[in-house]
């Protein structure tokens, strides 16, 4: 191990300068030279195999030298594995970093096998996920990169015009990750179903994001018949059980054999009122069972 000039080392950064979110040591440690030795490929042109972010930070801090160590690497795959071992952020790389790793592997004809995938994503999904990511339009890649949607939502919503996505992303109301996913999926489906062009899609997005509950507002538009059935059921339930210690529940999505009824009896008069309510339900049973 020896100390080497930061300025000279920066000129020796090569194609393996792939990382932007490296976990750096504390500035005080960098200033005192107490950092891991940066690997210099001894057998080739002395290319620096890892440590770009550390070097850049050292330069910002006015540090003149950092420790380095010459290492032997057999080939590009060996060099990439060394860089990934030193970076040690499996499963935590940004999408930009993953893309850089992926492109490095392709350019250097490195097989993306399970071993490499484990070092990048912590599982076997690296190649498949990258291919899916690279198929996305840039606006959806940005949405995946900033964590506002997952890759599956981005794929499903790919046809949603960019300005409509911007209406959702830029709205003041904060949506949870899962609600944003549901809302975007439904918006995309409504646009597909109704053949909405960009301006109409933007207006739709604007309209739902102004609602008190944007997710529910979108759901009503996506499922108008189901929503009407839910509304009808609520009305019936209110009419039939109002003031009675009885509750009526419909199966989820009106998918199922029947309704569930619950009685809470605290006195004999509760029984009378419940019997009256049951008679009303019996009289209007057709309206109720028409929903199933």
């Amino acid at each position: 191990m020896r100390m080497e000039s930061v300025e000279q080392l920066r000129r020796r950064l090569g194609a393996l300068d792939l990382f932007v979110a490296t976990r750096l040591p504390h500035d005080r440690l960098i200033q005192r030279g107490l950092t891991v030795a940066l690997p210099l490929a001894g057998a080739s042109r002395g290319e620096l195999l890892w440590g770009g972010p550390l070097l850049r930070r050292a330069a910002q801090l006015g540090v003149k030298t950092v420790p380095v160590q010459e290492v032997d690497v057999a080939d590009s795959r060996d060099a990439l594995f060394l860089a990934l071992d030193l970076e040690a952020r499996a499963g935590e790389y940004t999408w930009d970093e993953r893309e850089a790793i992926y492109r490095f592997a392709l350019e250097h004809e490195i097989t993306i096998d399970t071993e490499l995938s484990q070092l990048v994503t912590g599982d076997g999904s690296f190649a498949d996920a990258m291919m899916r990511y690279l198929r996305l339009a840039p606006r959806w890649q940005r949405a995946v990169e900033d964590g506002s949607v997952d890759i599956r939502t981005a794929e499903a919503c790919g046809s949603l015009p960019a300005p409509a996505l911007a209406e959702v992303s830029g709205a003041p109301v904060q949506l949870s990750f899962s609600n944003r996913r549901r809302l975007l999926s439904w918006l995309t489906e409504i646009c597909g179903r109704d053949g909405l062009h960009e301006s109409a899609a933007v207006e739709l997005a604007r309209q739902v994001m102004r609602a008190d509950d944007p997710v529910e507002a979108t759901r009503l538009l996506r499922y108008p018949r189901l929503s009407a059935m839910e509304s009808r059921f609520r009305d019936l339930e209110r009419e039939l059980t109002s003031g009675v210690p009885l509750s009526l529940a419909a199966p989820q999505g009106f998918e199922g054999p029947g309704f569930e009824m619950q009685l809470r009896l605290r006195s004999a008069s509760d029984i009378d009122r419940a019997i009256d309510a049951l008679r009303r339900i019996q009289d209007r049973g057709d309206e109720l069972f028409d929903l199933l």
Binding site: P224, R225, M229, G253, F254, E255, G256, L291, L292
Partner: peptide, 17 residues
């Protein structure tokens, strides 16, 4: 784009009625 609901077997089908 029709209206499908989740069923007990995990598949999505048209509204039961």
């Amino acid at each position: 784009h029709d209206e499908f609901v989740g069923c007990a077997d995990g598949k999505y089908r048209y509204i039961q009625r």
